[in-house]
């Protein structure tokens, strides 16, 4: 191969690698449960995160005036308050139901921009005394 082509190939390859791996690093969204958040809280600040868990019974509160939806996501061990304004129909939330919300942590509250709709054909509510691992499995299966 001529050195001219080799050089061109290298440049193209480097550009591509930069595009792919640079982009991947910035756009990785962690998927965590409340327990995992509290294990390494500082790691998840100021970056997009997907928080998975169940909507705690009795925590769901929708204010039709301000369009603000508040609820608590739990994995049976830890809880995180979530504030959501807007993107998702609040009607799709239900208590004791698995949710995955995408957003960022702000002062201990998770501010959600987006709910990833999880429509499971065979949904079951978690039972008393489930371990976080079981809850996580439930959420994953609901995806």
């Amino acid at each position: 191969m001529k050195p001219k082509y080799l050089l061109g190939l290298l440049v193209v390859g480097a550009a591509l690698a930069y595009l792919i791996f640079g982009g991947l690093g910035q756009n990785l969204v962690y998927f965590i449960t409340p327990s995992e958040y509290f294990q390494q809280a500082e790691r998840y600040q100021n970056r997009p995160v997907r928080l998975g868990g169940l909507v705690k019974a009795g925590s769901l509160d929708y204010n039709p005036k301000t369009l603000e939806l508040r609820f608590v996501v739990t994995d049976g061990v830890k809880e995180i308050p979530v504030r959501s304004s807007g993107a998702t129909p609040p009607a799709l939330f239900g208590e004791n139901r698995g949710v995955v919300v995408e957003g960022r942590f702000q002062d201990g509250v998770f501010v959600s921009q987006n709910l990833l709709v999880k429509h499971s054909e065979s949904y079951q509510a978690p039972k008393e005394g489930w371990t976080p691992e079981q809850v996580r499995k439930l959420i994953e299966e609901a995806e």
Binding site: L16, L19, I20, G23, L24, Q26, N27, L28, V29, Y30, F31, I32, P48, R50
Partner: peptide
Amino acid sequence: VVVVGTLWPLVVELLSGAKVSVGAPFFNQ
């Protein structure tokens, strides 16, 4: 590129155990 972006979460999970997803911004970019 699409294959790498789609499979990347698996690579990360295998290497570090963390669950991640590659957001749409990556693919758009």
